[in-house]
Simulated scan of single mutants.
Amino acid sequence: MEDDRLSIYGSPFLAAKLSRRTVIKAGVAAGAVVAAGGLTWVERALAAPKGTLNLFTWEGYAPAPLVKKFEAETGYKVNVGFYPSNGELISKLKATKATGFDLVQPSVTLIPAAMDSDLYQPIDPKRISNFKNVIPSMVEASAQLGGMIKGKRYGLPFDWGTEGISYNTKKIATRPTSFGDVHKDEYAGRTTYRATFHVFVATGLSMGLGNRMRDIYITEEKAKPILDKVLAFLISKKKNVKTYWKTAQEIETLLTTEEVWIAETWDGTGWKLDRAGQPIKFVAPKEGALTWMDGFALPKGAKNLDAAYAWINFMYDPKNAAMFTKESAYFTAVEKAADNLEAGIKKQYSESFSPADIKNLWWYGIEHSWWLDMFAKYVDKLKAA
């Protein structure tokens, strides 16, 4: 029988997917993150003392219990700011010339786009004693998916997950099987997704377009006829959409209040609500769950590097990694973390992913600036329609 750690963390299948390097995972967003006292988070970070880690990350990636434990064990204070998309992360780094941030957690596929503007500095795994705990195939995958550029390491793996469908089991009796189910007229006013390129990929997959949507990455000329068809379909079904969700808290609220019954979400969203006793389940669509890997990266202007490396080392500890999964519902790249997970979490994973689903995962690939520019235009057209 396959080892539990392998079935949960993907060591057997991840290496086989390394060549599947084409897709987009970025919504372009803007706006300042306002902190206490009326200062933006960046202004607060720039004014922080030397013993402070300025961590800019995804919502849910710095759970309060872990921050408290890190501060107690290391003596560093943590100043946390959140971004809702890779696009906003890159925009903030460009606006500040990559200063004010000590550590960020981009999707590894977006690191090349950031490096088009020289936003990160090389990262040294030798400064991380717990790096030995990271699944080797994850280390290799992060390198091939964007973390290694011209022989230098700019990103390390942190966690991985998927995007599929979360639905209310009280309102929807039949388990959804396709990304196309999100657009069914019977769920008019009760469906939601992010207005980002994720929905273009998912919808295109459900429509059977572009050689499983791989053709959109050959050239822009090749992509446009395919994306035009997807856009036309999304606009025709826009009346069914309750709202476009943006943050983890927003989609959790929409599902728990039953304002929406079905949504294109991250796996962690469905699992977290299920564990909280809500009638919500996450499923991997037959087209293949969209799969991402987020990592660690050091901004070019990072000042508190010791604190940044301390956080990475802390999160690579198996017990802390398991604590992260319990708090966030996302699986990390730390192999032995599975030994510390509750049986209920493992059960959720097996309920959502069959062995066939794992083989069918649809991995995001390297994303450069010209891709983001093209994709942003299609997202804008969808929002404006």
Rank of each mutant, 00 (worst) to 15 (best):
A48L: 12
A188R: 14
N86R: 01
Q121R: 15
K238M: 14
W271A: 06
L156T: 05
A47M: 14
V42Y: 11
D357I: 07
F82M: 11
A223H: 03
L119I: 04
T332M: 06
G268A: 13
I135Y: 01
A232F: 02
T291I: 05
V201L: 15
A173I: 07
I251D: 02
R175P: 10
L273G: 01
Y309K: 05
P318I: 08
K17V: 01
K359W: 04
S236H: 01
L110V: 09
V23Y: 03
S129C: 04
N79S: 15
P299T: 10
T174D: 12
E71Y: 11
M323R: 10
A338Y: 04
E186S: 15
L6C: 14
R5G: 05
L234N: 02
K77P: 02
I235L: 08
I172N: 00
P84N: 08
Y61K: 04
F13L: 13
T192E: 06
S137M: 07
A45L: 03
E71L: 12
L209A: 08
R275L: 14
Y364R: 12
F375C: 08
I312Q: 01
I123C: 07
L254W: 04
A36G: 15
F353P: 02
Y9V: 09
E342T: 14
G38P: 04
G161C: 06
N86Q: 14
E186D: 11
E258Y: 00
W363G: 00
